[in-house]
Design a protein around this nucleic acid. Structure first.
Length: 646
RNA sequence: GCCACCGUAACUCAGUUGGUAGAGUAGCUGAUUUGUAAUCAGCCUGUCGUGGGUUCGAUUCCCUCCGGUGGCUCCA
């Protein structure tokens, strides 16, 4: 048999006999690689390790250390789980079981609900099946054979899927008596699956449509090494520890009361103080960036929402109407129509543009009870909204400015890692192609100029215009969507908006919707989780807490507190007759950035003993020095608690 | 809304052949005057989410509704 030439990722070339398997190739490179190998990539196409390679190709051996490796591994684990489920619950019907971003799931149709105990049993069975090192093999069969095969097994969901496949040859994967319809690739043997944890059971509609039957979905995760799984589980615990709902309660930031209504946030004094600090900063920055502030009502006449199109396109998210002297009114789900009303209140000239109307506008949207989630998904929220009315020729300059503004704002809150998504024209849309092209291009240019890497979401735009969404990466590497900048070709038409151009003719302005933080509720929730409740000094509701050691320092401690307050530093005092360790414990649990202990020594030296958040004892320093240091951090919105001394 | 699980004191949670409830924390009172993450003692705390059913008797078993959690769909 003749040799084939394989080029490796490192640029080297290897000659091997044609027909060698992917595993064989991996072995020829090294035993370690062969052990870690999950699949092989041939000219960019993934293939099973136990299949032959017949032609010259550029190859790469896929291991767990890549997103594609994760996918193969998790997908194979989902098969293993389905295998185990079929053994334990032969009546369960298979639906689908893909790999997802973190782990995998498989949907089953089974009369009796799965219980947490079932998960343990399934995990055990999976370990058994993995240990048995059953080979996983691919079989290509005709569509007719595949149909017969799955009909015979009573796998009606698979039959439905096969019927919709265009190909005449169908691939199925088998491991022992288990078989699944699958494109592959898969690991060559079940023994590759080492450490598995089944995480949760959830309902999921067949094919995601609520018209279909509700199936049972089991989520899980797996890793080639137990340590990796342990790390993952530790991460889940960390996520739980940072949960903004828990921290919101512990730190007394906000609550949501059953009595006043789900999805409606009650901001407690400390949370409200943080919000106010964010808002003050937000307003200052908007003023500097040429925005005008506006305020608009919470309700508006039906005719307004008819003109805007909300009643035809957004009604399912709006609360039912109220009757005002025979006129129908609606609570606002968005601010834009009001801002447009302000624009239209007088004739605008090209000299007025761009006009930037900004409002912390509270909107209400109907969300189904099942989707509400702490601060992240609510029914009433305040958008840091603005609408920019701009002449077409200035659009690009404007977008560049907006994106730069977004980035600056987010960086101040301590986020440096962003991911941008530009969504382009969907199938159903308004506005001609040239407009879309121009606006999409402007978004790309703006992202480039701001140094933002972006991905294109082809066809993902709203029907009224393209948009860019910016996601923030938090301390745990999770992505959160906050900022959005959207073009709107629809509203200017609907409201017949105009401005008078240099040519003394009426022209249509562009409307750009934009939110930097998204909603104050969601942003706050995200901030809580990002900082695990330990906010930067400028945001912390209490910035310094003065603790007296005995009653002898009472007056001095009060004096310190008053001086701090006078300097604009949010300070509190604890003069209870408790031991210092106790008071420190409480202040530390409140995540106060600085604890100032005052005893006889400090009184004598006009000093404070500073304990930084995290437990670092800085010892005694003159009160003035502390105040200078903390004021500097606050003024510059630093995210560190490290005082610059001197 | 749908599926699963859950709902006991302000908070975290115990409470099995069905006999009207308990711990820690917090709170309050008092003692203690304390040097870097829990001083001690005493006191208080409940329509056992709601409504109904079964039963002599229900926190416990059954049903309804409300709310929460994890998902599905959607999204700031």
């Amino acid at each position: 048999m003749s040799d084939i030439r394989l080029s490796l990722p490192d640029g080297n070339e290897k000659r091997l006999p044609a027909g060698i398997t992917g595993l064989g190739i991996a072995e020829s490179i090294g035993p370690r690689l062969a052990k870690d190998a999950l699949a092989i990539k041939l000219d960019g196409r993934l293939q099973d390790l136990n299949l032959p390679v017949d032609q010259d190709a550029s190859i790469a051996i896929l291991t767990f250390d890549s997103p594609e490796g994760h996918e193969v591994y998790w997908h194979s684990t989902s098969h293993l789980m389905a295998h185990a489920v079929k053994q334990l619950f032969p009546r369960a019907k298979l639906a689908i079981g893909p790999a997802i971003e973190e782990g995998f799931y498989y949907d089953f149709d089974l009369e009796r609900p799965f219980t947490p105990e079932d998960l343990e049993k399934i995990e055990k069975k999976m370990a058994e099946l993995a240990k048995a090192a059953t080979p996983v093999t691919r079989k290509n069969i005709s569509k007719a054979d595949a149909l017969a095969f799955f009909i015979n097994r009573g796998e009606t969901y698979k039959v439905e899927l096969i019927n919709e496949l265009p190909d005449e040859t169908i691939s199925i994967y088998e491991q022992a008596d288990f078989a699944d319809l699958c494109r592959g690739p898969h690991v060559p043997t079940t023994s590759k699956i080492k450490a598995v944890k089944l995480l949760s059971i959830a309902g999921a509609y067949w094919r995601g449509s609520e018209k279909n039957k509700m199936l049972q979905r089991i989520y899980g995760i797996s890793f080639p090494a137990k340590e990796k799984l342990d790390e993952y589980i530790a991460r889940l615990e960390e996520i739980k520890r940072r949960d903004h709902r828990k921290l919101g309660k512990d730190l007394d930031l906000f609550s949501i009361s059953e009595e006043s209504g789900g999805g409606l946030v009650l901001w407690h004094p400390r949370g409200a103080l943080i919000r106010k600090t964010i808002e003050d900063f937000w307003r200052d920055e908007h003023q500097k960036n040429g925005y005008d502030f506006v305020y608009s009502p919470h309700v508006g006449r039906a005719s307004l929402w008819e003109t805007s199109g909300h009643l035809s396109f957004y009604r399912e998210n709006m609360y039912s109407s109220m009757d005002v002297e025979g006129q129908e009114y609606f609570v606002k789900p968005m601010n834009c129509p009001f801002h447009i009303m302000i624009y239209k209140n007088k004739l605008r000239s090209y000299r007025d543009l761009p006009l930037r109307f900004a409002e912390l506008g509270t909107v209400y949207r109907f969300e189904r009870s099942g989707v509400l989630h702490g601060l992240l998904r609510v029914r009433g929220f305040t958008q840091d909204d603005a609408h920019i009315f701009v002449a077409p020729e200035d659009m690009e300059t404007e977008v560049v400015q907006v994106i730069a503004f977004v980035v600056k704002m987010l960086r101040t809150f301590g986020f440096d890692d962003f991911k941008a998504y530009i969504a382009t024209k969907p199938e159903k849309s308004v506005g001609d192609d040239s407009k879309w092209e121009q606006a999409t291009q402007a978004l790309k240019v703006a992202a480039d100029k701001a140094g933002l890497a972006y991905e294109l979401d082809e066809g993902g735009g709203a029907f009224y215009g393209p948009k860019i969404d910016i996601k923030i990466k938090d301390a745990l590497g999770r992505l959160w969507q906050c900022s959005t900048v959207q073009f709107d070709f629809n509203l200017p038409e609907r409201f017949d908006m105009n401005f008078i151009g240099v040519d003394n003719q009426a022209h249509r302005p562009y409307v750009i919707h934009r939110a930097l933080l998204g909603s104050l509720e969601r942003f706050f929730g995200m901030l809580i989780e990002h900082y695990a409740g330990a906010f930067p000094v400028w945001l912390a509701p209490v910035q310094a807490k003065v603790l007296s050691i005995t009653d002898r320092q009472l007056d001095y401690a009060k004096g310190v507190r008053d001086k701090l307050l006078a300097a604009g530093i949010r300070a509190e005092i604890d003069t209870r007759s408790e031991k210092i360790g106790f008071k420190i414990r409480e202040a530390a649990m409140d995540k106060v950035p600085y604890i100032l202990v005052v005893g006889d020594k400090e009184v004598e030296q006009n000093a404070v003993a500073v304990r930084e958040r995290g437990g670092k004892d800085l010892g005694a320093m003159p009160l003035e020095a502390f105040m200078t240091g903390i004021s500097d951090l606050i003024k510059n919105k630093r995210t560190t608690t490290e005082l610059t001394r001197g």
